[in-house]
């Protein structure tokens, strides 16, 4: 097997949350292989465990058992420094609530990861301007997040996620807080980056608009992979089913 074929692999991923004396199993043995350069959507109703899976893949939370491999490196083996390095260079995160740093301008938000990566200020600013141009915000460089619309904030967040040329972009409900049209624009932007820059996009969502452009769709239910579909198969069925998957 070509070591470069998969960018993310999970093996028997389990995550349990303890609430009082109850144990809740949010992930119950997830095995998922994600190809380099694909656009994969993780779909499922809220509470299905997709955000938990997102956090585990992104190294934002430790799984109870099982492992996540990023570029064939077991994340559980990494120390704090290496994990930070991974978050800085290999993975770009996009959130439902945008999570821009409120006290910084659009450009400063995009430049922040380049500072952590050790880039010089000038190079960082140049990179930031280039990225904001790519997402179509080169006229809004010095605006603070609260001076931008939701869609614009999400564009800044996308530019920030790309700052250090990550191989993976993890998006947690990127269109969840946006209206239909803005959501579509964001999805189109993500797809464009996927095609043009070859970045792997992993998106947790329950936005059905995502189906059209995803290469594969993972349906999560009760902490398990319910089914895994290729887009070509979905397209055939789209006409006959509205909304929720049937199985």
């Amino acid at each position: 097997m070509d070591a470069n074929e998969y960018v993310v692999r999970t093996k028997g991923l389990v995550k349990e949350y303890t609430m009082g004396d109850q144990t809740l199993r949010a992930l119950n043995g997830v095995d998922l292989d994600i190809y380099r350069g694909e656009y994969i959507s993780i779909m499922g109703p809220s509470g299905s465990g997709k955000s938990t899976l997102f956090n585990a893949i992104g190294g934002l939370d430790k799984p109870t058992s099982g492992s996540v491999f990023i570029n064939d490196v077991d994340m559980a083996q990494l120390d704090a420094q290496e994990l930070a390095y991974l978050r800085c260079h290999t993975i770009g995160y996009i959130f439902q609530t945008f999570n821009l740093i409120p006290v910084m301008t659009a450009l400063e938000n995009v430049t922040l990861p380049t500072i952590f990566a050790g880039m010089s200020t000038d190079d960082g600013i140049e990179r930031g301007m280039e990225l904001l141009k790519i997402v179509g915000l080169d006229q809004r460089l010095h605006h603070k997040p609260f001076e931008l619309s939701g869609g614009q904030q999400q564009r800044v967040a996308i530019a920030r996620a790309l700052a250090n040329n990550p191989s993976i972009i993890l998006a947690d409900e990127p269109t969840g807080n946006l209206d239909l049209k803005t959501g579509q624009e964001i999805i189109a932007l993500l797809k464009r980056l996927n095609v043009e820059q070859g970045v792997t996009i992993i998106s947790a969502t329950h936005d059905l608009k995502m189906l059209d452009i995803s290469d594969r769709i993972v349906w999560i239910r009760d902490g398990r992979i319910d089914k895994l579909e290729e887009r070509k198969n979905i397209e055939l069925k789209m006409g006959e089913m509205e909304g929720e998957p049937v199985h």
């Binding site: 570029n71 064939d72 490196v73 083996q77 990494l78 420094q81 290496e82 930070a84 390095y85 991974l86 800085c88 260079h89 500072i115 952590f116 990566a117 050790g118």
Partner: peptide, 16 residues
């Protein structure tokens, strides 16, 4: 590869 990234990390993650 894990070892290599280890080395890189020490050099690259910083906040002056």
């Amino acid at each position: 590869s894990a070892h290599m990234s280890h080395k890189e990390v020490r050099q690259q993650i910083k906040l002056p």
